[in-house]
Design a protein around this nucleic acid. Sequence first.
DNA 1: TTTTGAGTTGTTCGA
DNA 2: GTCGAACAACTCAAA
Length: 451
Amino acid sequence: MTSVLWFRRDLRLGDHPALHEAAGDGPVAALFVLDPALLEPSGAPRVAFLYRSLRALDEDLRSHGGQLVVRRGDPVKVVPEVAKEVGASSVHVSADFGPYGRTRDEAVEESLGDVRLVRTGSPYAVAPGRLTKKDGEVYKVYTPYHRAWKEHGWRKPATPIASRVDWHTGLNGIDIPGDPALPEGMDLPDAGEDAARKAWTKYHDGGLGGYGNDRDRPDLDRTSRMSMYLKWGAIHPRTILADLGPGDETYRGEIAWRDFYATILATWPESAREYFQPELATMEYAPADGAAFEAWTQGRTGFPIVDAGMRQLLALGWMHNRLRMIVASFLVKDLHIEWQHGARHFMKHLVDGDLASNQHGWQWTAGTGTDAAPYFRVFNPITQGQKFDPQGDYVRRWIPELLNVPGKAVHTPWELDAPPVDYPEPIVDHKKERLVALERYQAARAGRSSS
DNA sequence: TTTTGAGTTGTTCGA
DNA sequence: GTCGAACAACTCAAA
């Protein structure tokens, strides 16, 4: 009996449990639905990367005698239509645990009627719900979660079957749309499963060994950049995990973080918008519609390391992890702007923008999340720059106005005898704003304990 | 039930 | 320059 394989965040053919399930039923029709509800809030870089990933998937399918059918619309309508057209008795998917995805899937399941919606696998090594404390509750602290996660383990990658699948062809779909206009000069990495595997192999044989020591050095750029492939499932985390050795504990931990935050968001879907610790929502913040927020988004705060990160985001659709923390801390604790505004800006511009990791990364910085940073942990944008970009190479790469400032002096351009005229003065006094932030948090904490 | 130990990523200050 | 303490109490996880 024919089935539909509805692709979402699993745009690959290798190591794909839902494909194995579908193939066991008979012929498989491959479908992707362009859902306006998901596309509209996404920025051009992520949409472009999605389209390229879809083209790559279609190419891979064609090389195995199949094709990818792409339809536009609400999956609640589109998926049953396609199932009917091919006479499918089941629709196979990888489980989606996001706030929108889960509700959508329940609605699709309802609209499918007698056709079964079968969820097999997920984008995670250890899917939400698999791992609980002994009392059955969800872990809220990373470290014990991580311990249990390692103990629980994950499946080995499955053997490839795409060439043996009886692919259903002949359905009409729309062409994958042309890429939306990208910012001038933006150069996205190659998309698709093949590119993901190649990028991973290259990193595995090259930079991975130095990850533990150098991952915080944006000037050295030793992170794997697998996030955008993981975002769309061009590679599955368990494929990556299978290649890691005992010395790769730090890198393995990052995969665990991804699973952890997915679990948190799946358990508390409202934490995508609301404060995980609601009592901190009453804290006083500055409005996000002023010049300060604008300066932050444009990389013109006058703090070189902050501006370099923000400009890297605009230019690449990607930002080094250390910079994500620095610029987030600056927005929340120097400009006193709520984390949601920063999270939204990130989601708009990041190619790898993942709701769970993004929102909870921000909540961590804001001190409002699970396992949050202590309130007194305020990043100093000057010393962070000096520490993690010691020669200033990263800053100079992204801030042409500072190109001629040598060495670490680039982190304090206002101290130069002749500061560059086209680079802004610091928009705030960090020392002062740090104290303001500490007071705000202290007041909120006092409010909490008295209420 | 109670108790105990622990908690991603930092900074400043004073000795 | 280097080092340890203070920053603060609270919640979580597990015994």
